[in-house]
Every structure is written in structure tokens, then in C-alpha cells.
Amino acid sequence: MSTQAQSLSPRAVTWARRRRAMARAWRDYRTQRSGMVGLVLLGLIVVLAVAAPLLIDASALSVTQATGGRMEPPSAEFWLGTDETGRSVLALTLWGTRLSLVIGLTATVAAILVGTLVGITSGHVGGWYGWIALRVSDWFMVLPSLVVAIALLAVLGRSVATTVTVIAIVSWSGTARLVRAQTLTVQARPYLERARALGAGHWHQMTRHILPNVLPLVLASATLLVPSAILMESSLAWLGLGDPNVVSWGSILNRASNNGAVSAHAWWYLLPPGLAILVVVAAFMMCGRALEAVFNPRLRGEAP
């Protein structure tokens, strides 16, 4: 009877500790004003992205069902004017949010997974494997990411999946370096020596001791990776390497410049997607910096 209560309660205690740690992190986070501004902005953007189909029907994106004229300036009917086929720029920008966020987030998740895996294993296992993993991540770090991404997309073809893959490929190395450094720090702690003396294998050491120690840092760095992934997606789409079947902010800009929006002084065609990119990137950066200050002990105390 008592055994059952005991086997249940350690888990409850672990969860209580996690809740306490979360509450503490949240308290630290709340003291950072820019982090809170970023969080509110982000919340708004996510709500808009999720609610886009409710606000504007998907048919507004169809070239054949467009109701406006060619590059009409903003009016009561089209708040942000129309594009060269007569579609509402507001609708395009709003729907573009969905794709930009999805690509930014999935590419980040993929990059973080690869980076964490390579970082932990190279820091923990060391030896020739660690050396090779370190060199490979160095190599990816010094490659000009946009050029590599363009080359890869040219080979792999243009689609949402390849865009995500390519962005992940060019951005995992930073996370790998960060995780590796933290792994080496944790590695030197006496409790890992104790675990080894108890007979713990690599798997036990990595999952029970190292991973929980690197996760907060990974979370902070992930938040900073999202804006760069979104920027990268926009750049690629603007260069005409995006998926032609979907609307993203970059692809709107690409169409705008291809169809002479600049010479037509159609600012309403260029500004909304550009500003949207700016706002989302700024919001993620603000959140990421705040998270970093909360989770990275080296920055703690130095932050104002």
C-alpha cells in the first residue's frame, strides 16, 4: 500500500518542481518589458494567422475570382489596395502570415532537433566522432547560407517542404555549437562522474543529466532562430524560389517587384508584407532575447 503511494509521489514531486521552475522563469520573464511587448505582438499575430480563414475567405486569393482592378490604391473596399490581378493586398498579407509562421516554426524545429542531437552527442561522446561533428558544424557555419540555400533549392525543386529542409540545413550549426558548449560544461560536473562510476551508459547520462540541463538554452536559441528562418524564407521567395502555389510574404514581394510595383509607385503593394516581416521578426527577437536573459546564467545579472 505504501509502496504504491511512494512510487506515485516522486512523479508528483517532479511535476511540482517543474511547475515551480516555470513560475520562476515566468516571473523573471515578466520583468523584461521588451519581452512582454514581443509576447503580446506574437500572440496577436498568431491569433490573426489562425483566424485568417474566418476573417477573409480563401477565394480572395484566387486570381480568377479577383474583384478589384489592377493595382488600385487603398479604398474603402480594399483597405490596402490591390495587386496586379486585382486581389486584395490585405487578404494576401493576412494569409501570408500563416505560411511564413509555419515555415519559420517547422524549419526551426527541424534545425533545433538536428543541432541538439549533434551538439549533445559530439560533446558527450567526443573522440573522433566529436571532432568530425565539430568540423562539419564549423563548415556549415562558414558557408554563406543564402547562396547554399539557393543552390540547394535549385537542385531539390521549389516546394514548401524543400524550403523547410533547406532552411533547416543552413541553420542547425549554431544550435549544435551552443549545445555542445553547454554539454561540455555539464559533462565536467561531479554528478556525471558519479553516474559513470555507478555504471551509467551514454544514453542514461545524456537523457537523465545532460539533456535537462541544455533544454532551457535550446528553447531560448530556438526563439531566436525563428525570425532568421522567416527572413530566409522571405528572401528565398522574393528571389522567386518559393513554392509557386502558395502565398507568403516573400512571394507577394516577388510578384510586386516582377510586376513593376516600384515604378508604378504602388507602395500599398510593397509595404504591408515588408512591415509584416519586420513586425514578426522583431516580436520573435524580443521574446528570444528575454528568454535568453532568463535561461542563460552567463547573461543573468548583466542584463539591465
Binding site: 554528478y191 551509467a200 551508459g201 537523465r208
Partner: peptide, 22 residues
Amino acid sequence: DPTGALNPRHTIYDAVAEGLRI
């Protein structure tokens, strides 16, 4: 140093049971 030898994230139960689990 017993402070360093125990993972601060693990309860005493977990720390002692670690050998059994391994």
C-alpha cells in the same frame, strides 16, 4: 563534494535509485 555529486534536479529518491535503474 556531495553538493556537486548530486544532480540538483533530482530528488534524493531519484539520486539513490539511480544505481538500481542503471
